[in-house]
C-alpha cells in the first residue's frame, strides 16, 4: 500500500501573527518498498512533510493515507500509537534522544512502549543492535559514553526494534564522517533490499541520493516540485540546476564533458562506466 498525500496543507501557529504555511496543497504518492529521497532547501517543508507520516503533525487540510490508515484534517485520529509503531521516524541528530542507563534498555524502550513484554523487547533490541552493527559488548554500556557515530546507531536501532514497515529518516548522516556516512547509507539500503522496508530519507547530499535511492521528491516552498525516479532526475544536470541544487560529481563531470563534445548514453551511471566511455571516445580521436 503506497503512502498518499491528497491536498494536504499544514499551517504553523494559525490565527496568530506568526502564522506560517509550511505545506500547501501537497499531492504526492510514495511507492512502497522503495527508497525515496526528499530533498529541497532549508525551509522548503521537507521535515514538516515527513512528520505527517506518523501523525506527529496532523494535516490542517486534506488527507494523508499511510499503510491502512487515513488521517484527515479536522477529524481526531484514534490509536495514533499503533501507527507510530508501524512508521518509524528518526529525527535529525537522534543521539540526543538516548536516556536509559544501558544501550540495550534504550533500544528496548520503543517496543516496550508498544506493549511488547520485557523479554521480547530485549530480544528485539538485540536483533536491532546487530542490524546496525553493534555487537553484544555494547549492550550493557551507557549510551552516553559512546562515540557520536555509535550513539547514532543506537538511536536508529531504537526505532528498528519497533519493527516498523516504513522508516523515515531526517538527515540521518548529518555530522558523520565520509566513511560513517557510506556505512549508514549501506545499512538503509540493506533494510530496504533485504528486509523489504519502505524508506524515506530527508537529505541534502546528492551523492547519497544518486548512489543509494530509487526515487526523488524535490520540495520547494511547501510543495513537491518534482517527483521522479533517480534515473530520470539525474539524466543530466538540467533539473538540478533548475532547482538550484549542486548535482552529484559524476553528473557534473558528464555535463562538463558533454559541453566539450563528449557523448554519453543514459546508462553511464558509475565511475567505471564513465571512465570506459571517456577512454573509448578519446582513443577514437587520439
Amino acid at each position: 500500500m503506497p503512502i498518499e498525500f491528497e491536498h494536504v496543507s499544514y499551517i504553523y501557529s494559525d490565527g496568530t501573527p506568526f502564522r506560517y504555511v509550511a505545506l500547501s496543497d501537497v499531492n504526492l504518492n510514495i511507492e512502497e518498498g522503495k527508497m525515496t529521497a526528499v530533498i529541497g532547501r532549508t525551509g522548503s517543508g521537507k521535515s514538516t512533510l515527513v512528520q505527517h507520516l506518523n501523525a506527529l503533525l496532523l494535516p490542517s487540510e486534506g488527507k494523508v493515507k499511510v499503510l491502512d490508515r487515513v488521517i484527515e484534517a479536522g477529524s481526531k485520529p484514534k490509536q495514533l500509537k499503533s501507527l507510530r509503531g508501524q512508521v518509524g521516524l528518526v529525527f535529525q541528530f537522534p543521539e540526543y534522544q538516548l536516556f536509559e542507563e544501558t544501550v540495550l534498555k534504550d533500544v528496548a524502550f520503543g517496543p516496550k512502549n508498544f506493549g511488547v513484554s520485557e523479554a521480547d523487547a530485549a530480544e528485539k533490541a538485540r536483533k536491532a543492535l546487530k542490524l546496525v552493527g553493534l555487537d553484544e559488548s555494547y549492550e550493557q554500556r551507557s549510551p552516553l559514553e559512546l562515540s557520536g557515530g555509535q550513539k547514532r546507531r543506537v538511536a536508529i536501532a531504537g526505532i528498528l526494534a519497533m519493527d516498523p514497515s516504513v522508516i523515515v529518516l531526517d538527515e540521518p548522516t548529518a555530522g558523520l564522517d565520509p566513511q560513517g556516512t557510506v556505512d549508514m547509507m549501506k545499512l538503509f539500503r540493506e533494510l530496504n533490499k533485504k528486509h523489504g522496508k519502505t524508506i524515506l530519507i530527508v537529505t541534502h547530499d546528492m551523492e547519497q541520493v544518486f548512489t543509494f535511492c530509487d526515487n526523488v521528491i524535490v520540495m520547494e516552498n511547501g510543495k513537491p516540485r518534482i517527483s521522479a525516479t533517480v534515473g530520470e532526475f539525474f539524466k543530466d544536470s538540467s533539473l538540478c540546476r533548475e532547482m538550484d541544487i549542486l548535482p552529484p560529481a559524476l553528473i557534473r563531470m558528464k555535463d562538463a564533458l558533454r559541453e566539450k563534445g563528449f557523448r554519453f548514453d543514459g546508462n553511464v551511471n558509475d565511475m567505471n562506466a564513465l571512465a570506459g566511455a571517456i577512454v573509448k571516445q578519446v582513443k577514437k580521436h587520439g
Partner: peptide, 16 residues
C-alpha cells in the same frame, strides 16, 4: 525548539 524536537522524537518511539 530542542524540547519540542525531543518530545516529537520520543513520541515517535511510542511515548505517550
Amino acid at each position: 525548539d530542542e524540547t519540542q524536537r525531543i518530545i516529537k522524537a520520543q513520541e515517535s518511539r511510542g511515548v505517550d
